[in-house]
Computed example of a mutant assay.
Amino acid sequence: MRKVYLGNHQIISPLGFSSKENIDAVKQGKSAMQNYTSPIIGAYIAGKILEKNLQEHFKPLAKNEAYTKLEKMMILAVAEVLQSHQEIKKEKIAFIIATTKGNIDALAEENPFSKKRAKLSQLAKTLQQYFGFSTPPILVSNACISGGLAVSVAKKLIQNKTYDHAVVVGGDLVSEFTLTGFHSFQALAKNICQPFSKERTGINIGEAAAAVWVTSVKPKEKPIQIIGEATANDANHISGPSRTGEGLFLSVEKALQEANILTSEIDYISAHGTATLFNDEMESIAFHRLGLQNTPLNSFKAYYGHTLGASALLELIFSHVSLQENMVFKSLGYTSQGTSKTLNMITKTAHQPLQIALKTASGFGGCNFAILLKKETE
């Protein structure tokens, strides 16, 4: 089977407008969370990109007023990734977009753009035209596993030799629509979220765009291969996860089968870790069922908030970085065990030998996703 690798990447977030800025911020333990007020739900905490900063970085690329906030974020991320591969013809590159709500802010009365801009197909068309791709992008919108699932689609297209390369981008916004939805569930935290911790009270919402190069060509430096991935739906509830972790369990189990490795070979887990009572409990049960309770594990939600369709992709990039740098990042916000099953939480950013990493994600509708990365050594 054709090997598939992760290549260069770019993260656009409140913590920075490049992967390097974001990695440095996380190493320093910085959180993007700030206090805001909504006329509908009142005070809340979220991670937002300042419009003036976004406009400043976007100005060299095109007119700010021609593109929505999300489009500018995604264009910035993809432009940087493609910059390193200018010699490759666009028809050789699959373009895959992951999002849950897209330009949802276009539906607001005060928004200057047409409400048609809120259609995901319109978002895809806008990005296609900007970058000059000859074929329409592939849209992946499957709740909070969208970013990871988009990488899975890229991997399969490359393995099947439909394409040699792919650029995958994921992005979502902090919007009144999303905030009021989670507020109605009483799931918004009143402070910076605390994944897997006893004191956790719910999630923070964040916004970000992340892009990554997926390729059949082995990178010259520190190659990271995708060795297995899978998705499974537990069909438990429209918003509540399975109490037994069945969907997540099956996803990881299938990914392990494809990779032909044992759970004991996994050195690190980047969990979904939303800091809601039911999600974190479900994950702890699934990881115990898999025999992964002693594997070092973290969540990035206290750094970025839950960035929805971008979250799995953004956090996969950090898994990539962890393997390349032999570094695990502190699970920000964790203080004490808050799940019925114990987990080996990472409480300090530190260097340690890593060979294989597992990234998982779960979302509304019972969807679950797992992907395994391996560092190739010379």
Rank of each mutant, 00 (worst) to 15 (best):
H57T: 05
G202Y: 14
S322D: 11
I317R: 12
H9I: 10
N22A: 11
S264T: 14
K330W: 03
K63H: 11
A32V: 00
K156T: 14
G240R: 09
S175R: 08
K119H: 11
S322K: 06
K375S: 06
K72L: 14
K222T: 11
I104W: 08
Y44D: 09
C193M: 06
K198D: 06
L6Y: 04
C367N: 10
L277S: 13
L373Q: 08
F177D: 02
G309F: 07
T37H: 13
A143N: 04
E229H: 04
A25S: 09
Q34G: 07
T180L: 14
L354H: 06
H165L: 01
A150G: 15
H320N: 14
K218W: 03
F318A: 08
S340M: 00
A143I: 12
G333Y: 01
Y303W: 05
L297H: 00
A124G: 07
Y130R: 07
K218P: 01
T178V: 10
I97A: 04
N204P: 12
L313H: 12
G338P: 02
V26I: 11
M1P: 13
Q34R: 15
G29H: 15
G42T: 05
G228P: 05
I226C: 07
K161C: 04
I192W: 10
I41V: 14
K92N: 15
G47T: 03
V169I: 14
I12P: 08
H165D: 12
V81N: 00
P39T: 09
G366P: 12
Q186H: 15
N111A: 08
H272D: 02
Q159I: 13
G228L: 01
Q225Y: 03
L314Y: 07
S13Y: 12
Y5A: 09
E221P: 02
A106Y: 02
P39R: 11
E176W: 13
R117L: 04
A118N: 07
K59I: 06
K52W: 07
K190N: 14
D24V: 11
A310S: 13
K59W: 09
L188P: 00
N35I: 15
S311R: 07
A79C: 15
V212H: 01
T263P: 08
K115V: 15
A370C: 10
E253F: 06
K301M: 10
K30Q: 14
T339L: 01
A189N: 06
V217H: 15
N236R: 11
G338C: 11
G333I: 01
I49A: 10
Q225S: 13
G305W: 06
G7I: 02
S38V: 02
I371G: 02
V252W: 02
H9L: 12
F364N: 10
Y44A: 14
L262V: 09
D267L: 03
A259N: 05
K27C: 07
N233M: 13
S216F: 08
S242K: 15
L358T: 09
T37S: 13
S242F: 01
G7A: 08
R2P: 12
K119P: 04
F300W: 15
G338T: 02
T335N: 09
V168I: 05
L107S: 05
F196H: 00
G247K: 03
L15F: 10
S311Q: 10
L149M: 14
T295C: 12
G366Q: 02
I104N: 08
